[in-house]
Design a protein around this nucleic acid. Structure first.
Lengths: 336, 336
DNA sequence: CACCCGGATTGAAACAATTCATTCACCGCC
DNA sequence: GGCGGTGAATGAATTGTTTCAATCCGGGTG
C-alpha cells in the first residue's frame, strides 16, 4: 500500500511537503499542491491513522462502554455521545460489558492499549476496582448513568432515587398499598437507588418498608422480566402493583401477566423505567420514568472532550445530575 | 507514559527481550521473564497498539457499518459479529450510516485510514459506488443483509423475496384481498425484494398487482410507522391488511391504528418483518417474518476472518443466503 | 551590489513497537 | 582442548507519519 514517501517521489517533492498538503494546505504553493493531490489520487494513497497516532501519542477515538446495547436506553445514550464526538472529529467505539466486571476490565485494557482519547463508561463493577486501576493510565473517563464516587472523574447521571420515588409515589396515590419491585443485579447503583426512592415514597405515605416486595433478577432483559412475572404471580398475597427497574423487565412482566390472563392495570398495575420507545407501543402502553438518555450521552461526551482537550491541567471534574420525569400511560392509569 | 524501552532499562534487558516476554513468553528464561514482568508491573506499562499496528500494517479491529443501531435487528447482527470477532481476538467498531450514502462514504474512509482488518457492511448506497471505491484499498469486506452484486466480496443475506411472499401469502390465505405495503427508502434492496415477494404471492393467488397498495416512507423507524399508519387510515377503499417492511414501522402503524380506534386484527391485520424481541410484546403481539440476525452477524464475521487470514490469495468469495420464517401472532390471526 | 527578509521546501528526528540476523555463553563430544 | 550445536539475549532496521530547524530562492532595500 502506498505511503507518504511514494506520493512524495511521484510528485517530485519531499515527504514534509506532502504532509503539509494534507494538514496545512494553505502553506503550500497551489501548483505544488495540485501536483501532490494528483499523485495522491493516482496512487490511491490513504494516510495511516496508526502512524499519526503513534506520533501524536493518542488516537482520535472515544470509547463508550455500556451495560447492554440490546437496551434501547443505551442506544440512545450512544446516539447522543456519537453526535457530540463526531462534531469534534472523533470516532466512537461502542462496546458492551454485559454487566460483567471481567468483560469490563478486558475492554478497559483494550482501550488503554488503543490509547483512546477517553472513555465513557457505565460501570458494571460497583467496587470501582476496574476504574481505579484504569485511572493509572491517565486516560480521562466520564461515568455515565452513575454519580461520581470520589473525585476521580466527571459524571453524568439521572437522579434515580427521585425516579424511584416518582414511580412508587404515583402507584400509591393511585391507591396501591403493596408494590412489588422487580430489581436487577444487586451491585448496580441504578437498581439500588431506584429501590431507595421507592422506599422513601412508601415512608412518605406512612407505609411500612414491607409494603415493597422485592422480586430479584440477575439480568435486565425481557426474558428476565417474563421470569420475574411468573414469580410475581406466585406471591401470596399478591401485590396489586409492580415497579420494574427498567422497561425491558416491565415488558417481560407484562407478557407473563398477559399470558396468565391477568389484566393490566385492573388486576395489577405496572410502572417501568427508562421510557424506551417501545414502552409506548407495548401490549398495554407502559407507564414509565423517562430518562434524558440522548442528552446524557451528549453531555458525557462533551465533558470528556473538555477534559481531553485540557492542556494546562486546569480541568475540574464535574458531576451533572439530570432529572427524570414520570410518563403515565395505560399500564397504571386505572386504580383497581 | 512508559514505553518498552523504559521497561527494558528497568529490568536490565534489551527491548527485544521485553517484546519476547510479551509475545513469546516461552522463549525467555523464567528468571528473566519474572524480572521483566515485575518491571512492567512497576512502571504500569501498556503496550501501544498503534505502534504494533504500524509495524503489522493493519489493526486488530473489525468494522461493522449498519443502517441503524436503533433497530434491534441490527443490534442482534452486531451481537453475532462481535462474538465471532472476539473469539478471534479482534475488537469490533460499530457505526451507523443512518441510510445515508454520504455518511457511509465518510465511515468507509475512516475505516481505510484505520487500516481495519475488514468491514462488515449493510450498504446504504444501492449504486455500490461507495464500495467500489472502497475496494481499491484492498481491505476485505462482507456484505450483510444484501446479496453480492458482482463478485467483489462475500455476502450473507436472508431471502427477502421469500420473506415478502411468506408475509403476503399468509395474509391472502387469511382471506385478505387488498394489502397495503408500508415500504422504506426505495433504494434499499431489502425493501424492494420484500415488495417483489409480496407481488409474487399476489400473482400466485391470481390477484392483480394493484391489490398491493404501497405506502411509501423514507425512514424505517417507529415514528415513520405512525406517519404511515395515518396515511393508511386515509386510503379509500381501505386495505384490510398491511405488510410493513420492518417491525419498527409495524409498531408505529399499530400505534396509529390503536389511537384511531381501529381494531387489529379485526379491522386491519398487520404483518411486520424482522421479528425483533419487542414484536412479541406489542400492543397486539405482532405477526412477523423472523430473520436469523445473530447467525447472520456471526457468519459474516467468520467469512471476513477467513478472507482476512487468507495469505495465499486462495480465498474464493461466497454468498450465503439464509431462510426467513413466518411467526404468526395475534396481529394477523383472525381473518375479518 | 550586498544584504536581508519572507515564504516555500526540505530532510532528519521522533514516536513505540516487532523482527531477525547476530552474538554470546555454555555444554557435550570427539 | 577444540569444535559444533543450542538456547538466550541483543540491538539495529523497519514501519508511516508529523514536526521543526535548516535551507533555498527571489525580490526589495540601503
Amino acid at each position: 500500500m502506498a505511503g507518504i514517501k511514494d506520493v512524495a517521489r511521484q510528485a517530485g517533492v519531499s515527504v514534509g511537503t506532502v504532509s503539509n498538503v494534507i494538514n496545512r494546505p494553505e502553506a503550500v504553493l497551489p501548483e505544488t499542491r495540485a501536483r501532490v493531490l494528483a499523485a495522491i489520487e493516482e496512487l490511491g494513497y490513504v494516510r495511516s491513522e496508526s502512524a499519526r497516532q503513534l506520533r501524536a501519542g493518542r488516537s482520535r477515538i472515544m470509547a463508550l462502554l455500556v451495560l447492554d446495547m440490546g437496551n434501547p436506553f443505551f442506544v440512545d445514550v450512544a446516539r447522543g455521545a456519537e453526535r457530540a464526538a463526531r462534531q469534534a472529529g472523533l470516532g466512537v467505539m461502542v462496546c458492551n460489558s454485559g454487566q460483567s466486571p471481567a468483560e469490563e476490565a478486558e475492554y478497559l485494557g483494550m482501550f488503554a492499549e488503543q490509547r483512546v482519547c477517553g472513555v465513557l463508561v457505565t460501570p458494571a463493577d460497583a467496587t470501582g476496582r476496574n476504574l481505579d486501576s484504569f485511572s493509572r493510565h491517565r486516560i480521562p473517563y466520564v461515568l455515565v448513568d452513575r454519580v461520581a464516587s470520589g473525585a476521580g472523574s466527571c459524571a453524568v447521571s439521572v437522579d434515580d432515587v427521585r425516579g424511584g420515588a416518582l414511580a412508587v409515589g404515583h402507584l400509591i396515590s393511585a391507591g396501591h398499598r403493596s408494590v412489588a419491585y422487580v430489581s436487577g443485579p444487586g451491585d448496580l447503583h441504578q437498581i439500588r437507588d431506584r429501590r431507595e426512592g421507592a422506599l422513601s415514597a412508601l415512608a412518605e405515605a406512612g407505609l411500612p418498608p414491607g409494603a415493597l416486595v422485592e422480586i430479584p433478577s440477575d439480568r435486565l432483559d425481557v426474558a428476565a422480566g417474563r421470569d420475574a412475572g411468573a414469580r410475581l404471580l406466585g406471591l401470596v398475597p399478591r401485590p396489586t402493583a409492580v415497579f420494574c427497574a427498567n422497561d425491558l423487565l416491565a415488558l417481560g412482566v407484562l407478557q407473563a401477566l398477559y399470558a396468565a390472563g391477568v389484566r393490566v392495570p385492573q388486576d395489577i398495575a405496572i410502572v417501568g423505567y427508562d421510557d424506551i420507545e417501545f414502552a409506548a407501543a407495548a401490549a398495554v402502553p407502559l407507564t414509565s420514568v423517562r430518562q434524558p438518555a440522548v442528552v446524557m450521552g451528549r453531555m458525557a461526551a462533551e465533558l470528556l472532550l473538555e477534559e481531553a482537550d485540557d492542556e494546562g491541567g486546569t480541568h475540574e471534574h464535574r458531576s451533572v445530575v439530570l432529572q427524570p420525569e414520570l410518563v403515565v400511560r395505560a399500564s397504571s392509569s386505572t386504580p383497581r
